[in-house]
Write a protein that binds this DNA or RNA. Sequence first.
DNA 1: CGCCGTCGTTGCGCGAGCGCAATGTTGTAT
DNA 2: ATACAACATTGCGCTCGCGCAACGACGGCG
Lengths: 233, 233
Amino acid sequence: MLYTMGSMDPARSRIFDGLTERERRQWLEAAQPRDARRHEVVASQGEPAREFALVESGLLKLLQLTPDGRELIVRFVRPGEPFGGVVVLEAAAYPVTALAVEPTRLLAWPGDVLRALLDRFPRVRANITREIAAHMTDALTRVRELATERVSQRLAHTLLRLMRQAGTPGRDGVLIAHPLTRQELADLTGSTLYTVSRTLSQWQQQGILQSRRRQLLVRAPKRLEALSRASEA
Amino acid sequence: MLYTMGSMDPARSRIFDGLTERERRQWLEAAQPRDARRHEVVASQGEPAREFALVESGLLKLLQLTPDGRELIVRFVRPGEPFGGVVVLEAAAYPVTALAVEPTRLLAWPGDVLRALLDRFPRVRANITREIAAHMTDALTRVRELATERVSQRLAHTLLRLMRQAGTPGRDGVLIAHPLTRQELADLTGSTLYTVSRTLSQWQQQGILQSRRRQLLVRAPKRLEALSRASEA
DNA sequence: CGCCGTCGTTGCGCGAGCGCAATGTTGTAT
DNA sequence: ATACAACATTGCGCTCGCGCAACGACGGCG
């Protein structure tokens, strides 16, 4: 089976909010297209950030890697979304490793090009700042969840987030059209594939959701929300 | 007993790196001094951010609060350090609650004043961005630690961070001159005061550190580092 | 000086969730 | 069509760390 996150006209990305069509074209012309194969590493945690990029089609996975090989998924980057914001402005190190989940087409701006463009288009700087603020809030929320919630609650929260970000509402529920293995859900919630599997099985029996291989259909979002609050399994 | 984090000439803050003395003075003159009492809430999670601030003296604690009353400490803000960076640029909501641990003197810039100043001093914008990048990296590191490490490892990491940030090296170890209760260490590591107390007792018996009430002396930083890597208690 | 509030320690029992192992299922390659 | 690889499920035992309870220690204040 073929999974695809589709593509998006990069000129429509939120980071270009407030720009005219001509201005958007200027940005796109300054960008270097880049294609990443499946499982290709696009950026490595700890390496100096040299470029800022936008996903045009495909899907990136941002990871925190542990010394002993475990990985934690920070977030996915979908078509139209930027990557490498803060970091390229300061030529600091990438805080994450970026991996292409499927064949992915990127638009990349080297650091100096980006800085020159941002001086001419302060609005884009503000848009990028907005993204960063959102990701910061998100990171802090996850820190809190990891520190204070049970696995089932964190899993519920994670599914709800995925629904919002990548959900397509259908007749009998919201479909999460996203190639997610149990292992990936575990890496998103800070758990193990066993516990995730058990929890999902339970929820399936209760009619809250239906899980095919690598696909999830949430039938009762409200019950999921309840589960994300209470600690009852 | 009186704890104090001392004070710092605000003009020496890292956010003014690259500015002349005159320029620094211009910033300070545009700021509104504000005094916060012990335990006073300086900013509330979820509220729209109206100002950017610098701690001149005292100490702030940034918290994520859970619906059921638990709290998680995001970080401390010491003299010379800024607070409210990302958020005020985008007039978004504070992602944390800020609480004065002790009587604290702040310098505050309202959002519009800040934006006007930043347009005249792009270097300060870059400096603030640098801070944000560091905090983002920090937040992601903590997410990873919470998801993959045992309590003892996280506690070791936390103590090492505190040593770097607020440690004063002495004859027989590094003193963490910071009013930290067991509960606060638990809120920093995502654990409980019981487990923290037990772990510290154990380390004290092993001669790794010495704990007085609300003060810690780390005698063997290297052994702490080893503990932060291995999962052995 | 003695009281009291805050903070710290430790014993004990219990439960969430980990992780191995064995087995089942589904899509893909030849 | 068949074989294989990747992914998913479930039983089972065990450990980490939680959380109550009881007690202890310290420091501030009248």
